[in-house]
């Protein structure tokens, strides 16, 4: 696969704070590139540097073989983006917003083409309504229509599901899959929620405190057969004691505080149930864990176990 975005040693220093620290990664053509990290990890800063909104302190960014800072117009012509909240001109209609940003992107669209663009995000019926009357999800869709107005090869979505209801989140997920599968675009999508990335990403980059933790193919990083479960027991102290003396000791992730958490293969779960009974552990609930924090636990568990 051909690499389309190549970032080397990217650093951004805000006064005393190093928001992004020597970050390097590559995005291949056709990827849905998941960009994961906690809030404040440096995702937005990195994406804004990719879009020339923030000037890097150090490092280089190449897009399609061109240096971003030297050829920013050519590069940006090939990128469509929605950064955080989808803010557009509230006093203009959806149609007027799309038209205005199309002009800025250097394309002249006919009325039909603009309506088509709005239809793609399901807003054809509200085209002439002012954006200030729109819901958050509708605004997000206007933002996406604008991001795609000049038919860019790369689409960057920064936290696209923030503030959306479950339906809105599902819509965005489908939109990303549509962009990737049907329109063959490269999509870079950031999130602090593992579940969102897991379902769409082909490749994943995880950063923490401005530094890269891991980069790799999603199917390798998110092994579907592996899972993490949290046990809620009547007596955690007793449960820890029993588990530590059993075969399950190697599967335990946490130290002796809170509920016991285990990392295991899904097919081992029935055996765990039986053993808990055998070990006299009174189980109240068993919950699969599915957060980024858990993912960090999973990939860093090697250090612990």
């Amino acid at each position: 696969m051909q690499n389309i975005i190549s970032v080397k040693g990217l650093t951004k220093q805000f006064h005393n704070l190093t928001a992004v620290n020597q970050l390097s990664f590559t995005v291949n053509n056709g990827d849905v590139y998941g960009f994961l990290g906690q809030n404040g990890a440096g995702k937005s800063t990195t994406l804004r540097m990719l879009l020339t909104l923030i000037e890097p302190t150090e490092g280089s960014i190449e897009v399609a073989g061109m240096d971003l800072l030297k050829h920013h117009k050519e590069v940006l012509r090939n990128i469509g983006a929605v950064i955080e909240k989808p803010d557009v001109y509230k006093y203009l209609s959806a149609y007027e917003n799309v038209q205005l940003f199309a002009k800025l992107s250097g394309v002249r669209l006919s009325k039909e083409q603009i309506m088509q663009q709005l239809a793609m995000v399901g807003l054809q019926d509200r085209a002439n309504d002012k954006v200030k009357t729109f819901s958050q999800g509708m605004k997000q869709r206007v933002g996406i229509a604008i991001a795609l107005v000049h038919n860019p090869q790369i689409v960057i979505l920064d936290e696209p599901t923030n503030g959306l209801d479950p339906q809105g989140i599902a819509d965005i997920r489908n939109m990303i899959l549509h962009l990737s599968r049907d329109l063959k675009k490269t999509v870079v999508v950031s999130s602090h929620l593992l579940s969102e990335i897991e379902q769409v990403a082909t490749r994943v980059l995880i950063i923490d405190k401005g530094k890269k933790l891991v980069e790799g193919n999603a199917d390798e990083l998110f092994d579907p057969s592996e899972t993490i479960v949290e046990l809620e027991t009547a007596n955690n102290h007793f449960a820890f004691n029993q588990l530590e003396q059993s075969n399950w000791n190697n599967y335990l992730l946490r130290e002796r505080k809170g509920n016991p958490v285990l990392k295991l293969n899904k097919k081992d779960i029935p055996q765990l149930h039986k053993d808990l009974v055998a070990l006299n552990i009174e189980l109240i609930a068993m919950q699969p864990k599915h957060s980024l924090e858990d993912y960090f636990l999973r990939i860093t568990s090697a250090n612990y176990s």
Binding site: L51, T52, I79, F101, L104
Partner: peptide
């Protein structure tokens, strides 16, 4: 304030 500045500046303009 509106947040449109970041959208504008991601467009290919000097």
């Amino acid at each position: 304030n509106m947040g449109t500045l970041r959208l504008l500046l991601t467009k290919p303009i000097s």
